[in-house]
Design a protein around this nucleic acid. Structure first.
Lengths: 243, 243
DNA sequence: ATGGTCGAATGGTATAGACCATTGCGAATA
DNA sequence: TATTCGCAATGGTCTATACCATTCGACCAT
């Protein structure tokens, strides 16, 4: 078994966290207790906990105990990381459900954004995104049909759109203009995202272009305010003193 | 001597890195050697190196050695534009009103953010920002008193804090970690910002550091969701310096 | 009830020692 | 000369143990 013990323990705990078996604010057994039941030394157990702590998944309080942190999913604002990849890399289980997938005729504002003629056919796609089976983001994006013919042939519940664009159409998203603003959830959005109407949401509007600066996608993503935080990160977010 | 040994070692090494005494690509003595000369155990020395490694300052290669990493990538400069300048440049009339300006003792979370001792005195400042006489942003920021003695002597209703820091204290904000999230307005915030309680706001949390990576400011800005939009343009390529 | 004290439990730090896989390089070999 | 092999050094992991400061609740005195 080449995998270090502390990594195995960390992954095991991570699994229990993302599946909800270990709920936020729940208290873990003490280090001495856990290391005993797992038959490892306390230092090894601490190495495992450090992995999770560095991911921001734990709250540790000397004299008190170790608790599962309230999840705050972080997303780097400055990069074009596709949703699924960025989240999977952080160890979250992701999923998607298609709400709408149809062809429409571009209205004037969309036509402008995508640099096409008014009423030219576009794909209009709405997906609800999940993390650990919890709906956290409502995504809407619009692409010209002539750039992505038969887009509905691909499984957009399992695959990232950017990945499909690159693999199946040879189109790489290269540049994007994004904006972020805070909005209130409408009733429709609230129901899908399982929040109360009026709850704060983060609206990300995006216009993405290919390597030749031709616009290929216009999208709007609605993130639950209580689950997402956008970071513009320079250095690693390590804490020097507390951990 | 409350400061842990490994923190002291890490800070000592960090000092040598930022001053250039330890140059990029330079090889450090081996862990066993360094721990011997410093008269600490190897595990303690490794704890110190882990701190620096987490900051991305080290390259560690089993079987080979530990090296100083190449310096970081240059970041988009426009991010650190002070509020007043950014707005004034766009032609808006700006103003500020001090809500709170007092000395407090740092609580644990603030102390961690600012890398100071708990209960060390800090300035706690709240300002309400106006654009065209309309309140649009509620700003809170906290700085250590020892870095900005007599900060209350300056007119923070007319001057930007960053400008005061540079002009009066010779401290230049050089780097920052920011995060954005959507929140609901409390009653207090709603009254000041002249929105209804529960209205969507954008919360920007910021930790700013000087040129030597020492944290100097922790701040939280609350923007009205109906008045602000954050724009992030994503450059085609991110240059990575290959080591 | 109220307030204070004490102690057990907790996470944080530190030590000394051990074994492992990988690396780099010199020595042995073809 | 070119290639391979062996080995010492390196960082990575793991153990067992010890002491510290902080926390929190039980107990006690008021």
């Amino acid at each position: 078994m080449g995998i270090p013990i502390y990594i195995q323990i960390a992954e095991n705990l991570l699994e229990k966290i993302v599946t909800g078996e270990l709920a936020p604010d729940q208290r873990l057994p003490s280090e001495r207790e856990l290391s005993n039941t797992l038959n490892v030394s306390r230092m090894t157990l601490r190495a495992a906990l450090r992995v999770l702590d560095n991911k921001g998944l734990l709250i540790r309080r000397p004299g008190d105990g170790t608790y599962i942190a309230q999840p705050k999913i972080e997303r780097q604002a400055g990069k074009l990381v596709p949703f699924t990849e960025g989240m999977r890399l952080r160890g979250y289980q992701t999923g998607a459900k298609i709400i709408t997938l149809e062809q429409r005729h571009a209205e004037i504002s969309i036509a402008n954004q995508l640099d096409i003629a008014v009423s030219e056919p576009v794909y209009y796609i709405q997906r609800l995104r999940f993390i650990a089976r919890e709906p956290v983001m409502l995504e809407k994006f619009i692409v010209p049909v002539y750039r992505f013919p038969n887009l509905d042939a691909y499984d957009l519940e399992m695959r990232s759109f950017y990945e499909v664009a690159e693999t199946e159409y040879g189109i790489t998203i290269h540049q994007a203009q994004q904006s972020l603003e805070a909005v209130s959830a409408t009733e429709f959005e609230a129901e899908l995202l399982e929040v109360v109407p009026g709850a704060p949401l983060m609206l990300e509007s995006r216009q993405a272009s290919d390597s030749e600066m031709r616009p290929v996608e216009y999208g709007q993503d609605l993130y639950r305010g209580d689950r997402f935080r956008f970071i513009t990160e320079i250095a690693p977010k390590e804490k020097l003193l507390s951990g």
